[in-house]
């Protein structure tokens, strides 16, 4: 076993355990915290794959941004004593069926796909200059258009948020 395999095992164990805990915990803030661990471990997985940029983005956006927002909204709305009700059988069975179908589809797809075995040398890394350039490139594999579309979407969301926040005052 190489150290990389060991780390992979640790990360995947963390992801699996905390994913299960996230959906089974009946306290909503605990669930959010477990979700944070899942996301951080996923970031670790990216580091293991040497996708440093993706890993950092994962940490900034998901762990540092979205989870903080989720926790923040929980702080505003719920009380410490609150516990979610135990779901009834009517809810458990469809949930299990849906999860099972999803798992079967994903696993069968992965198993059917033939991954080409390629050993990436240790020093090779995704070049962030390439990422940056393709983000603003208008050529064939450029992402300038999606980038701008997303920025307009975010702007619209921001304006909407401001209007919603203003409305409450008067």
């Amino acid at each position: 076993m190489t150290p990389n395999q060991l780390m992979f095992a640790i990360f995947s164990a963390v992801i699996i355990i905390f994913s299960i805990l996230t959906v089974t915990s009946r306290r909503i803030l605990r669930a959010a915290t477990f979700l944070l661990f899942v996301l951080v471990a996923t970031g670790g997985m990216y580091f293991l794959l040497r996708f440093n940029f993706l890993a950092a983005i994962q940490l900034t956006l998901y762990a540092g941004g979205i989870v903080v927002l989720i926790i923040f909204s929980i702080l505003l709305t719920s009380h410490i004593g609150e516990k979610l009700e135990k779901p009834g059988l009517k809810k458990i069975i469809p949930a299990f069926v849906a999860a099972g179908v999803g798992a079967v589809v994903t696993i069968s797809t992965i198993l059917q796909h033939n991954f080409p075995v390629e050993v990436i040398s240790g020093s090779e890394r995704t070049d962030i200059r390439l990422i940056a350039k393709s983000l603003i490139s208008v050529e064939k594999f450029g992402y300038a258009l999606p980038f701008e579309v997303i920025s307009i979407l975010l702007l619209a969301a921001m304006v909407g948020a401001i209007i919603l926040a203003k409305k409450r005052k008067d």
């Binding site: 951080v40 970031g43 983005i57 900034t60 762990a63 540092g64």
Partner: peptide, 10 residues
């Protein structure tokens, strides 16, 4: 550094 230091607020 920015990424990991943003975890502290949690």
């Amino acid at each position: 550094v920015i990424a990991v230091s943003s975890l502290g607020v949690v």
